[in-house]
């Protein structure tokens, strides 16, 4: 045995190489993919939107920092998850929202939606949606005061879905406003009332396309979600069966934002492919039911939250096939 000692070598168990993907890289990439939609929103609804976005992000990061300090964890701000939650919350409030409300929503999203469960990876519900639903329940008036496109002086205008609901359920409160004022092109490009981030379908799809190319999200949840909403509203959303305007349903409201960016949240969604398809279908059915027969014109956030609650059950039963076991 020779006695020379070289510089101590590192000994770890295999594997000795790791893929370049990291949690923070994924989070920041999703963040960047959401930016185009925000830019369109600033263009359509004015610079007030930028203030809302910055407030939400700042509040989320500050809350995350404070929670980590209180729970004596190493701060997890740089992993981008809090920033992303803040941004998604901002995208889920109307353009004219007061900043204090946005701040409160972000605080609830991180503190109640995430930190109390144990931080990143442990939360059951999508934090941004927890924040949004909290705001919806607490400030229903502020949360449904929609701003008409290109009207900086905050002229309120109902969203396409509200108009549809009004006609579908026969309440006729909004008589006089007509769905015809929105063409599919307007809906697709985002020239309509709605939450900050949900407006421009084109911008959202651009980002989602990039995420798919990078394989950060797969088609399973978005396609099954949107497909189910489309089929459901086509069957039940018209006068009689099979006459619904499913393109209106797909392009309006928060469906695209929700299906591509919030239902696909890793932490709160199922892990297996079969589970994800089931999750998407469940989301789609609940969204359809809420939109057609529920109390609110929009149901995406509730559907995702409800399915989040079912996720552990889905993960329990939709397990991958064990290698070598009979089918």
């Amino acid at each position: 045995m020779t006695e020379k000692q070289p510089a101590p070598l590192t000994v770890t168990s295999s594997p000795h190489i790791r893929s370049p993907e990291t949690t923070s890289k994924i989070m920041w990439t999703v963040f960047v993919c959401l930016i185009p939609s925000g830019l369109v929103s600033v263009y359509v609804f004015g610079f007030g939107v930028l203030g809302i976005i910055l407030t939400a992000v700042f509040a989320a990061v500050a809350t995350e920092w404070a929670c980590c300090r209180i729970q004596r964890k190493t701060p997890t701000i740089m992993d981008g998850s809090a920033v992303l939650t803040g941004l998604l919350l901002a995208y889920n409030v109307p353009p004219g929202s007061p900043l204090w409300m946005v701040f409160l929503g972000s605080f609830i999203a991180i503190a109640v939606g995430k930190a109390v469960f144990g931080g990143l990876g442990c939360n059951v519900f999508n934090p941004a949606l927890v924040g949004r639903v909290f705001l919806m329940a607490s400030f229903p008036v502020l949360m449904t005061r929609w701003q008409a496109p290109f009207k900086v002086d905050a002229v309120t205008a109902p969203t396409p879905l509200a108009i549809f609901k009004d006609g579908f359920s026969g309440t006729n409160v909004l008589a006089g406003t007509d769905l015809v004022q929105y063409s599919y092109r307007d809906l697709f490009l985002g020239l309509r009332g709605g939450c900050i981030g949900e407006a421009c379908v084109l911008a959202l799809l651009l980002g989602a396309g990039y995420l798919m190319i990078r394989k950060y999200i797969t088609w399973h949840i978005p396609l099954s979600f949107i497909g189910t909403v489309g089929v459901f509203t086509w069957i039940f959303g018209g006068k009689g069966l099979f006459g619904g305007d499913f393109l209106l349903q797909i392009f309006s409201g928060g469906l695209i934002l929700g299906a591509f960016y919030m239902a696909t949240d890793y932490v709160t969604g199922p892990m297996t492919r079969q589970g994800q398809i089931l999750f998407g279908i469940g989301c789609g059915i609940i969204t359809g039911i809420v939109r057609l027969w529920g109390g609110y014109p929009e149901g995406v956030s509730y559907s995702i939250l409800l399915m989040n609650a079912v996720t552990p059950l889905i993960d329990r039963f939709m397990v991958p096939r064990r290698f070598g076991e009979e089918r």
Binding site: P8, L9, T10, V11, T12, S13
Partner: peptide, 8 residues
């Protein structure tokens, strides 16, 4: 120490 252990 014989080497630097960096495991679980």
């Amino acid at each position: 120490n014989k080497f630097a252990y960096r495991g679980l």
